[in-house]
């Protein structure tokens, strides 16, 4: 399905699909109410009115204030990978309701319909400036990008695939954390993904983690913080504990910019912050630094 998507050329068509998928979002609803046809969008940050095509052309970054809008997994892959290079792997895995959690199936099918995804992560192989990579991209619009059994399984499978095929690995995280509806099984996906990430380290294969808004809880506290290189988009919320939980615990308001990318860079958790327009180029540069050693390993 995705392969087809990447082979259809006219870019505006696919971007439009993406817009339709996420139309339910609050900001679009608001924009629609105020501005007919949804052709105009109000920036969440600077509140200026942006023409939707300008936003699309600018990779969903506000042309006026550089605010990075959240984007789905398909859009992200389109921005990062060489055209038509993505081949999806582990696409068959579907979620179940192991705990019989109330309303879980209903919510799953709602998000499946809205995003056109089976689960909150797309995994596979592709190329960035001709360099083959294994890649896992999370989708925040699917149940908050939460990590349940399928997400954990697909991500760990992709690490395993990268290790078996001598590929560098990239993850793009966008997640509220572990998925409550699968209980302890979700928590265990943190262990599953972390141990799979170890496989690359053993082989000297590079793993680059791209943290986007938001990356929190059990995803930040597992593979996403464990890149050889951790890079984040500007202004992304990245944290272990939720701001409300912290505020309730310490009974004080949190400082401005707390748990934003810039805060994490300052405190040594991130290697670099990269504007969305530069992410693909930066990944290619980083990958080229690791290409020769990987070839040597593979040949040796």
């Amino acid at each position: 399905m995705l392969k087809d998507l990447f082979r259809t050329k006219p870019k505006y068509v696919t971007v439009r699909n993406y817009r339709e998928e996420t139309a339910r979002q609050e900001r679009d609803e608001r924009a629609k109410k105020d501005l007919p046809d949804g052709l105009w969008i109000k920036c969440e940050n600077c509140h200026q009115i942006i023409y939707h095509k300008d936003l699309e052309q600018n990779l969903q970054v506000c042309p006026k204030c550089d605010y990075h809008f959240r984007i789905g997994a398909k859009e992200r892959l389109r921005q990062l990978l060489d055209e038509s290079s993505f081949e999806e792997l582990f696409a068959d895995l579907s979620p179940t309701n192991p705990l019989n959690f109330p309303n879980y199936e209903k919510r799953l099918s709602k998000y499946q319909k809205e995003t056109g995804l089976k689960e909150g992560v797309l995994t596979g192989v592709g190329k960035i400036e001709e360099i083959p990579v294994a890649i896992a991209v999370m989708d925040f619009f699917f149940l908050g990008g939460s990590m349940g059994s399928v997400v954990g399984e697909k991500i760990s499978n992709t690490f395993e695939y990268a290790a078996a095929n001598h590929l560098p690995m990239i993850t793009v995280s966008a997640s509220g954390g572990a998925r409550m509806q699968e209980g302890i099984l979700s928590l265990m996906q943190m262990a599953k993904t972390c141990q799979a990430r170890n496989l690359l380290a053993e082989q000297g294969l590079v793993y680059i983690s791209v943290l986007t808004d938001p990356t929190s809880g059990g995803v930040y506290a597992s593979f996403a913080s464990q890149g050889d290189i951790n890079l984040a988009e500007p202004g992304a919320y990245i944290g272990f504990a939720g701001t409300r939980v912290i505020e309730q615990t310490i009974r004080q308001t949190l400082p401005e910019g707390f748990q934003k990318s810039e805060f994490l860079l300052q405190h040594g958790v991130l290697d670099l912050i990269v504007h969305r327009k530069e992410v693909r180029k930066t990944l290619a540069r980083l990958l080229r630094f690791h290409q020769s050693t990987e070839r040597a390993e593979a040949n040796g």
């Binding site: 943190m190 930040y220 506290a221 990245i238 504990a241 939720g242 912290i246 615990t249 400082p255 748990q259």
Partner: peptide
């Protein structure tokens, strides 16, 4: 739970938890 506080976040609570999980796995 691991402590939810300002200093804990500053010093990378999520990173510490993840790193420990990885260390145990290996």
């Amino acid at each position: 739970g691991a402590y939810p506080g300002i200093e804990a976040e500053e010093r990378g609570q999520g990173e510490a938890v993840a790193h420990s999980i990885m260390a145990m796995a290996g």
